[in-house]
């Protein structure tokens, strides 16, 4: 393999890895704080994809404005999902499985709802950024590189919120000991709704970054949900930093796999890697580092 091919593989891996990290870190944040697995998380990507298309293409808004409005709306939708479908189940027996079942139902509901509303058309956004960067014989569209840069910036921002703000402090407290957090007066409902909103924004950002290079369609969330889950387990269930690291690792593994195997085996490699890791290290690759 030549150096430039290798470099291309690494950059491609980091780019798809950054999307996995965005999706996975959101799921990890929600799980770490609330012990809830949200199977409708992928549909937040899908909804964000359609929203940004609507604002940027149909209404012809400036991309930045369209993105900001989309993220705000998706955050609100994430919070609403938590309030309406998840919070009422938490007090009941066997809630963990009920939440899984209810969110799987919600996921299908949203997918077929999108299909009915928008049809099966597969649509794409125009590129946000023009131009190509040359890196030692390798030519990368700025659009693709921007995914990595923006995703990193967003996750950094999220870490800043977690570790440097009052909201972050009560989120971490709830993640570390929910009952003790309640005892000092931290309102669990507020924390749960906030982390859902944050995780929805991270997923929505992933969708916006992808929308110029992937088609927006009702099922676009499905594969990202599975990858996001894989990342969360690899990173050590509920660990924000672990999920980010595992996201990039999974992206790199996939990028490496397509250099030796046909592309259609990429996901087989990814999920086999997940099961192999679970077999030898049930607590994930980066166990012990939680929020």
């Amino acid at each position: 393999m030549t150096a430039s091919l290798f470099l291309e593989m690494v950059i491609n891996g980091l780019i798809s890895g950054s999307i996995y990290a965005l999706v996975g870190s959101g799921i990890a944040l929600v799980y770490g704080t609330t012990r809830v697995l949200n199977f409708a998380h992928g549909e937040l990507l899908m909804i964000a994809g359609y929203l940004v298309l609507f604002f940027a293409v149909t209404l012809g808004w400036n991309v930045i404005l369209a993105s900001v409005v989309t993220l705000a709306l998706v955050g609100g939708i994430g919070a609403a999902i938590q309030r309406v479908t998840i919070a009422p189940l938490l007090a009941r027996e066997d809630w963990a499985f009920r939440v899984i079942a209810a969110t799987i139902g919600l996921s299908i509901l949203l997918q077929s709802g999108a299909q009915i509303v928008w049809g099966e058309q597969f649509r794409t956004l125009p590129y946000f950024f023009d131009g190509v960067v040359s890196l030692g014989g390798l030519r990368m569209p700025v659009q693709r590189l921007s995914i990595l840069v923006i995703a990193l910036a967003l996750m950094g921002l999220c870490a800043l919120v977690l570790y440097r703000t009052g909201l972050g402090r009560i989120v971490r407290a709830t993640a570390q000991d929910a009952e003790a957090a309640l005892a000092v007066g931290i309102p669990a409902g507020l924390v749960h709704t906030s982390v859902f909103a944050i995780s929805a924004v991270l997923a929505g950002a992933g969708a916006i970054l992808l929308s110029p290079i992937l088609t927006v369609n009702p099922w676009m969330g499905v594969s990202f949900l599975l990858k996001g889950f894989a990342v969360v387990i690899l990173g050590g269930l509920g660990s924000f930093g672990g999920a980010v690291a595992a996201g990039f690792l999974l992206g790199l593994i996939e990028a490496a796999s397509v250099t030796v195997l046909p592309t259609e085996w990429r996901d087989v490699v990814a999920f086999t890697f997940l099961i192999a890791v679970i077999w030898v290290r049930p607590n994930g690759l980066f166990a012990g580092r939680e929020a």
Binding site: R169, A173, D177, A180, V184
Partner: peptide
């Protein structure tokens, strides 16, 4: 206020953060 059985501190936070969180309300 309550001091729970087995302390139940927020284990990965600093002592200062733990104490200050006590004043959350």
């Amino acid at each position: 206020a309550i001091v729970l059985e087995r302390r139940r501190l927020f284990p990965r936070m600093s002592v200062h953060e733990n104490i200050v969180l006590g004043a959350y309300a």
